[in-house]
Structures are given as structure tokens and as C-alpha cells.
Amino acid sequence: MPSVRDLRDRIKSLRNTQQITKAMKQVAGAKIRRAEAARKQAGPYAEAIFAMLKDLMDAVGAVDHPFLRPGKEGAPKGVILMTADKGLAGAFNANIVRAGDQFARDGASVVWYAVGNKARNAARRMSQETVYETALGAGTKLEVAKEVAAHVTDAFTAGQIGEIVLVSSRLVSMLTQRPEVRTLVPVAAEKAQAEPGPRALVEFAPSPEAVLTRLLPKYLEFTIFYAMLETEAAFFAAQLIAMTNATDNAGKLIDDLTLAMNKARQAAITKEMLEIVGGAEALSG
């Protein structure tokens, strides 16, 4: 049985841990609000760019753009694996990495583009090749997104990769984050076959094809940017939950240990009293 002193030390160290997890919980709570605000601010842009893309697709019907054609056959798939830079968020990063790994096992060969330090570490562990790495927090998100988009676009047009796939986290709700695997390029054909709306009569300068040539890369860039915002928000949500649980668990442990310590102390007192009583009886007897 551990002594009172041992228990007291353990409780003390647990209290420290609890204080840290509590602080991290509060920080995550504040950061998630910021991340959510940033994601909301990107909303109007998302809506507008989707609408423009739809108008364009409606207007031109079949277009010849590399992004709309299947990529080079037999070429490996380029997978953008997107995680947070830091851990301490439960299984958040591990879940994303597992989704990416699963995808790589199911399909043909894969080339990794790692966004986020945890993705970088995971990609290095996995057997396939990593061609590009960046931290989620390197520079402003828009710059990082542009760079990632430029890399995958160049590789795709050069035929080094046959598909661009994004593995990132969806923030379903504050309590649920789900990793998601999406094929970004070739752009899904169903979009191209959308029914022509009344807005279809649009003039394009210089030509629909020329505008599309610029809009598609921008669309890819923005999708990556938006995924980064969402992954970050999901990360803080996961961290908030993990830290709340950790704080609660530490509290429970402290309660249990305090009870054990009190019992041990009481046992020691009882033992001492019995010894005194026994000693007195022996003397008087």
C-alpha cells in the first residue's frame, strides 16, 4: 500500500497536469472561435467562385482543359495530406493519416504532398515518396495554399501525377471531426453537366475557355485554402474535446487518490492508537 506521502506527491503532480490541460482547453476554445470566424469570412468567396464556375460550365458545355480530362494513365496519384502542426488533440491527426494510408493501400501508387507537420512526419514514415512538405502555419494560409496548388498543378500538367486528391478534416460539428478524401482534379464531371440556368447567357472576355483556364487553378487554390481553414478549426475543436476529457480524468484521479490518501492516513492513525492502547494495557496489566 502506498504511503500517505507517496499519494500526496502524486496528487500534487496530477494537479499540475490538470492545470496545464485546463489552460490548453481555454486556449483551444479561444482559438476555435478565431478559426471559425476565418472560415465564415471565406464563405462569400466560396459561394461566388462556385457560382462563377457553374455559370462557366453551363455556358461552355464541353471544354478542353487539362483539369477536366482524366490525368495521365498509370501515373501515381498526388495526395495532399493535410493535418495540424501540433498534436495533443486526441486521435485527430492519426485519423487523417489513417484515411490517407487507407487510400494509398486501396489504390495505385501514391505521391505525398504533406501540409502540416504531423502529415510530414507520417508521410516520411510511410513507404511512398514525399515530394513536397510544408507546415500548416508557414506564412499566411493563402500563400501556403497557393504554393501547394502550384506544386500539384505543375506535377499534374507535366504528367507526373494522374490525379489530385485531398485528405483533410471536415468539421461536422464542434463534437465531430471526420477525415475526408476528395478528388480535386480531374474536376468531377457532374459539375459540367449541371442544368443550364437562366444565368447561362453570359458574355465572356476574351473567351469562356480563357476564363476557365484561369478560374480552375484558382478554384483548386481556394479549395485547398478553405480545407486548411476547416482543418485548423477541426483541430482546435478536437483539442478542446481532448483537453476537456484530460481535465475531467485528472479530476477523477485526484478524487480517487485523495480518498486513498485519507484512508491511508486514517489507517495509520488507527494503527498508532491501537499501539498506544495496547502498550497502556500491557503496563497496567
Binding site: 462557366l56 447567357l201 453570359v202 458574355e203 465572356f204 472576355a205 476574351p206 480563357a210 476564363v211 484561369r214
Partner: peptide, 19 residues
């Protein structure tokens, strides 16, 4: 500034999209 030079839009412009 469009790809083809400056584009000016006044009210009641025809539907138009440019980079």
C-alpha cells in the same frame, strides 16, 4: 484590369465574366 485590358462596368451591363 481584365486580361484583355481595362473593363468598365456601368449599371445595366450585359451579363459578363472576365478574369
Amino acid at each position: 484590369v481584365g486580361t484583355e485590358g481595362e473593363e468598365g462596368i456601368l449599371p445595366s451591363h450585359a451579363p459578363f465574366l472576365t478574369a
